[in-house]
């Protein structure tokens, strides 16, 4: 794992299990995502969201984005999700609060989602995706990530820092109890 992160080269064996890993991760992701739609219990939904996020991290890992996979697990699954769970716990007196939705609403929503998916799929299938101008592939090692982040992505990086500061102020203000 560490070697992978450092060099961007994968062990040979991973290559062979890739299809199985893909099936497992994709299965977890999609299944849990749709379980969120179906589930009527907010805590269960949060649980399924955790599985989805984990599955997505696995998919990132399969796509040579190990750093991103780690970040996904640490920040998203470990941070954001915990935040959401806190939100759930703070805002419902009953920790197993049930959400009441009508059946027809669920059908309409699922229908709309399916329609959107179908449209996007049609668009995807009908689009010839071409190769980029240059053929040299970038190493996905941590060094490249660092220099990219502080190179072409310097401004977004710094702006994100400022954004987080503002968010901190805003969230702290909204959440603190002063008259």
């Amino acid at each position: 794992m560490f070697t992978t992160l450092a060099t961007g080269i994968k062990p040979e064996s991973l290559d062979q299990v890739a299809p199985f890993l893909y099936l497992i991760f994709a299965g977890i992701t999609v299944f849990s995502a749709w379980m969120i739609v179906i589930s009527q219990n907010i805590v269960r939904m949060a649980m399924y969201l955790l599985f989805t996020l984990g599955g997505v991290a696995g998919l990132y890992f399969l796509m040579n984005a190990e750093f991103l996979a780690a970040i996904q697990l640490i920040v998203y699954a470990g941070g954001t999700l915990i935040l959401i769970v806190f939100g759930v716990m703070l805002t419902s007196k009953n920790p197993f609060m049930r959400l009441h939705t009508y059946l027809w609403e669920r059908f309409v929503a699922v229908g709309l989602g399916a329609l959107l998916a179908m449209l996007t799929t049609i668009a995807l299938v009908n689009t010839p995706i071409k190769q980029s101008a240059s053929d040299q592939m970038v190493n996905h090692d941590i060094h490249t990530i660092g220099s990219t982040l502080l190179g072409p992505f310097l401004v977004p990086f710094e702006v994100a820092a400022v954004l987080l500061l503002v968010v901190m102020i805003g969230a702290a203000f909204m959440a603190r109890s002063r008259a």
Partner: peptide, 21 residues
Amino acid sequence: LIMIFIATESASIPSYALAGF
């Protein structure tokens, strides 16, 4: 695109808090 995205967010997120000030 990334600047559009992050700039929009840094304009929006404080606005959410401001709206509920």
